[in-house]
Every structure is written in C-alpha cells, then in structure tokens.
Design a protein around this nucleic acid. Structure first.
Lengths: 191, 191
DNA sequence: CGAAAATTTGACATGACTCAACTGGAGTGG
DNA sequence: CCACTCCAGTTGAGTCATGTCAAATTTTCG
C-alpha cells in the first residue's frame, strides 16, 4: 500500500505482514497544498506525519516577529511538533507545506494502539528519536562552533537538492542568518 | 540500592521489583575524579552513564582548536556519545567530569539484555530520547532566533545553580560566545 | 605563599544585521 | 503579447553584536 512507509519501517525493525497491515490501517493519507498549514501554535498536535511525497517546514515566530525555520522535512521523514504530540499540550510551532505534499497521518491514540499491539514499534520509535536527537545535537554543535559560511556550505552539501526546492530566505532562516547576508555570502563564494 | 535511579525510571514507566533488581544488577557504579575524562573522540562509546552525583560536560574541539561544550549533565541525567553508543562506531565527543562524580554505567550489551527482558525499557528510552530531542530542538531555536544576552539570561534562569558549579568559560562555550564577551555582558547587566 | 588558571578590561577588527533602493522573474488580466 | 504587480533576490551604506588579542587583576589550589 505505502511502499515508502514499509521501506522506512524496515530500516530499523523487521515486522511481519499482519503487523504491516495493522500499521497501514492506522495511517490516514492526506494531501496538503503548497503553503497550506498543517499545524499552528497554541493548538495541540494530534498527529505525527509521515511524508510520502513533498516537503514541509517546521517553524516558529521569534520575539521580533520573524519566522525562523527549525527543521525541514522531506520524503520518508516523520515530523510533528514532538513536544505537543507527546504531551498533548498546546504547541509552539507552525508546520507548513512548501510543495504540494502527500502525508500519512497517525493519531496519538492510534499510535498508542500500535505500541501496545506491536511491541517492536517501541523500538522503532526509540531508534528514530535517537537519530533525531543526534542530528539536532550535531546542529547545535555547528551553531556554536562554525561560521555562517561554513554552515551554509555544509547545508548544501548535506541537502544537495535543497536549493532547488527551498527558497533562499527559508534556507537563511534555517541557518540563523538574514536572507540579505546569505545573498552576499553566495556572491562572495562565487568569486 | 540506587534510589535516584529508581526515581528516574519511575518518572516514565512502572516496573516491578524483579525488574528493578535486574536493571540495578547491570548498572556498574564508578567514581570519576574532577577533570577526569570518561570518553574521548575516536573511541567507541561502550556505555551509557547515569549520574548519581556530580556534574559532567560533553564537548568537542572545533576546527580552530577551541573546546565547545555541547551539553552539561547533572544528577539524574543520562549521558553518552549517543551516536557512538548506538552505532558502536568511533565517536567525536569528549566526556569529562567537572566535579568529583559518581556514575552508574550500563554497557551496550547489558542494555540489549535489558531491552529484551524488560520490554517496557524500550518505552523508557523512547520517552527519554523524545525529551532529549525536544530540548535540543528548543536550543537550536534559541540559537537561531535569540541574542547571546537573551540566551544567557535564559540559561541562568533554567539552571540557577549553574554559575556555582560551572566556570564562566564553560558557560560561554555552551552559549556559543567567547568568555570575554560573556564577561562584558555580565558587567553590562549589573549596571 | 606562589604559580597557574580564570576573569576582567580595553582597543580594535569583523561578521552579521538593518534599511532602503534596485533588479528580475512569475503570474495575471486586458 | 504587453503592462502591471508582487515577490524573491541583490546590492550598498551604515550600524551593532560579537570576536580577537593583549594586558591587568582576581581566584584557585597545590
């Protein structure tokens, strides 16, 4: 049914057919138009999302009123406002589609069911969150020890298609710099 | 045996006596002198550590040769070079005691055993890593959207005892600024 | 007490931001 | 097919936040 989802699950755990079927039965497909918001601050994040096709950004608005991208998510990524989802309390993030996107959503309640009925799912989520934590930790490390230029170069190396799919101002916001400064950096790099 | 460990486990899962006993049997106490290193880059992180008493820092050395603190860990925290521990590949971090410290260490192999014999442990680690991820994500958010001064004020509010236990240059490194600049900021804040 | 390390202070340098003007597509409607 | 608007991106001048380096001072600890 959802080959990309299977592939993703198989990365970390092996499941039998009936387990796959159960998981797939809980995943609700949904299509989201470009620019549409899936999540807004103050609301409780009731689902976690698996991206089958497309591109999302998780962002917040800082004290000065600027949008700041916390995280991009592409095909085969899971995304949600994890605090809000886990605690079922109002969240702080926006989640928005940057392209027309197809997601599979899993409610908190169905997640609990899956965790009860398929114990290996605990393992899957544990590993997923370990990886997510490691990635965030690395990003913190880069923020505190690298210059904006290094961070940019690393970003385009790590996500080679990013410049095609994400506008420059979103990349700048992700890197923690202004779009103007990114533009200047790029022209400096070219020469 | 280890009341703090029990308290920590109870935060997220409920276990029976025999399960506690099994867990405690795998935790190996170890004391670490101030300034001693538990972990160094290039080595495989073979244990995860629970801090019973004391204070550690996880840090790395950046391209310019400066130490950069990625994370502080105090009593009741679990810490390791998570990537290295999980993948059992050479890591990139130093882990060092900032005070005389008592830790309980759990080897990767014993961890696997615990996960097999106490399925609820998967849940425990999943939740722990969700929380860790959320905390790191928040830190990234602060790095990209707040000034150094705001980050400092937030830091001392969040860790009121930090200034007593951690030297200023370590705090500066954690915040991503130089010790000199932190010093200037503090004198500005006083007036 | 004395040496080494941590912190403070100051002068100067630079990375990164702000604001405003300009350029150059990508739609949209006539 | 043109004129128009609307963004995103570029460029430049001036400014502010933070870094660098070196010297002075204080604290820590053997």
């Amino acid at each position: 049914m959802y080959p990309l989802l299977r592939k993703n699950l198989q990365r970390h755990v092996s499941l039998d057919e009936s387990e796959y079927a159960l998981i797939e039965s809980k995943m609700v497909p949904r299509s989201v138009a470009r620019d549409e918001h899936i999540l807004e601050p103050g609301k409780i994040c009731r689902h976690t999302y698996f991206i089958d096709q497309g591109f999302l950004r998780l962002y917040h608005i800082n004290i000065k009123g600027y949008e700041k991208n916390t995280l991009f998510a592409r095909e085969e990524w899971w995304v949600s406002d994890l605090y809000s989802y886990h605690a079922q309390k109002p969240g702080t993030y926006f989640l928005q589609a940057l392209e027309d996107t197809n997601i599979l959503q899993l409610s908190k309640k169905d997640m609990e069911t899956l965790l009860e009925r398929i114990p290996r799912m605990e393992r899957f989520w544990r590993i997923l969150h370990i990886n997510a934590f490691v990635a965030q930790q690395e990003r913190v490390m880069h923020m505190i020890s690298k210059t904006a230029e290094d961070r940019y170069l690393e970003f385009i190396e790590k996500y080679p298609d990013a410049e095609l799919r994400i506008s420059q101002r979103h990349i700048a916001s992700y890197l923690g710099i202004t779009p103007e400064f990114l533009s200047k950096m790029k022209s400096r790099l070219k020469s």
